[in-house]
Design a protein around this nucleic acid. Sequence first.
DNA 1: TTCTACCTTAACGTTACGGCAAGGTGTCCG
DNA 2: CGGACACCTTGCCGTAACGTTAAGGTAGAA
Lengths: 123, 123
Amino acid sequence: MGEHMQIGEVADRTGLSLRTIRYYEKVGLVTPSARSQGGFRLYAEPDLARLELVKRMKPLGFQLGQMRELLGLLHPEPSDRRPEVDRLREFSDSAERRCAELRAKLASAEEFAQALRTRLGQG
Amino acid sequence: MGEHMQIGEVADRTGLSLRTIRYYEKVGLVTPSARSQGGFRLYAEPDLARLELVKRMKPLGFQLGQMRELLGLLHPEPSDRRPEVDRLREFSDSAERRCAELRAKLASAEEFAQALRTRLGQG
DNA sequence: TTCTACCTTAACGTTACGGCAAGGTGTCCG
DNA sequence: CGGACACCTTGCCGTAACGTTAAGGTAGAA
């Protein structure tokens, strides 16, 4: 019932490896919101949400540093907002383009899988 | 009109970098079918076809070594065929699974892109 | 207290390339 | 024939995003 969980449970719930989760922390992408007395990472729900966001973005081929920046833009300090909005729009446009590319690649890959299956059928 | 082309033209036609094409050769994935007198790589149409196949498989996350094996299975020597067919079926099943995974990831990524756009709309 | 599962950092290894340096090749042009 | 110039070669070091031990500390139950 604790509101924090250890890295192992986070790994189970997200499907990410321990190594990946630690690496994401190292590059400043997702930092656990607490540590136990003995040094164990303790994650809360918002941390999980960040990890899930990263998982969603990853197939689009963004680099971890870009995702870090984008996550920062999504939780902004209420200071000068203008350039942030511009940057956000750039990310959004980029995301759309990458989605389109990925759709094309998927279609191509499905054709390949289909051809492979057909080949087995008549083998 | 030569039936062979140099690596630069191959790069233009496939969208792959020179570096990538050379690397694929290094790992035994796609070998140019000839070399010029002075050592330039010379590619023919079947080489292009192999490269295109690799491009199609790549989004499914196969490793280069696996693709090399699969390409070998697709152009077999007529010797003992049985284990090859079994292996082919494994690849085919794996390809189907990976297609399904990729479809799911794409859907998730598109939700993300949608959310980002929406967020910009109401700013 | 001791066992066990889970965690820690550190460090080296891997895949799939990118980038640059130093130099050879092919073809055309005067 | 001798440059000029685009294109190519190998070699080597660098990078991103992790995987994989190794050596040892922590939390909670028995």
